[in-house]
Amino acid sequence: MKNENLYNYILGIADNSLILGQRLGELTGHGPNLETDIACTNISLDLFGQVRSYFQYAGKIAGDGRSEDDIAMLRKEREYKNVLLVEQPNTNFAYTIARQFLFDAYHLAFLKELQKSPDLTLSAIANKCVKEVSYHERFSSDWVRRLGDGTEESREKMQEAINDLWMYTDELFHQTEADKAVVAEGIGVDVTNLKTAYYAYVAEVLEEATLEVPETKYFQKGGKNGVHTEHLGYILAELQYMQRTYPNMEW
């Protein structure tokens, strides 16, 4: 492939939306009320829409006729590049919200930078996504406040979810070799620059929500290089089921 770094860079961005969208899709019809059910489904819908734009572009870069579905559904476990955070399960609604907020805060800051990319396809996708993700971030941060500053029970649950997922936040700011190369070309976003503002903003929201910022110094990593948690295999089993069972068919 002529531009393998860019291809891998795009997959790194899109896989986050793909896996998080898949996780949110599990919840449809099972939300705590109708309004949140609709909102989570809607976020999932946005994320899959984004995935399609990214993978269509990636397919073009690959230039060998691979389709968005080939890229989304026919890779092996170790070839998915999403961060570990987004594959964490819907343990309860607090975990769903914590995962969403910790990702959205990053995602929004990331897209605002990607809008400035000289790669016109990427900046156009970012322009569209930034509107959607602003809404996602508003939804998730509002719910962090609501659950944190709601009842004693909800506060405990929200704090537990934040504590448990915190160790996956640092990875958001790691770079793969492909990322570094695309940043060096002036096309990609240098995520290391987003880290300080991210943690400051997250701390601000947690404080408003009367929650504590976890103090751990130990973080998990690996997703960006295809080393995942045990959850990913099951996610892929569902995601890939039809394509694997009925190969080479149109739907």
Binding site: Q22, G25, E26, T28, G29, H30, L34, D37, I38, T41, N42, S44, L45, F48, G49, V51, R52, F55, E68, D69, A72, M73, I235, E238, L239, Y241, M242, Q243, Y246, M249, W251
Partner: peptide, 24 residues
């Protein structure tokens, strides 16, 4: 809703999500 995570293509997945969301 039980088929959202297993939809055979991204296009179908998006359409199914939108449909179930309409029902909600």
């Amino acid at each position: 809703g039980n088929w959202i995570t297993r939809a055979p293509s991204l296009r179908r997945k998006v359409a199914l999500l939108a449909k179930v969301q309409d029902e909600a």
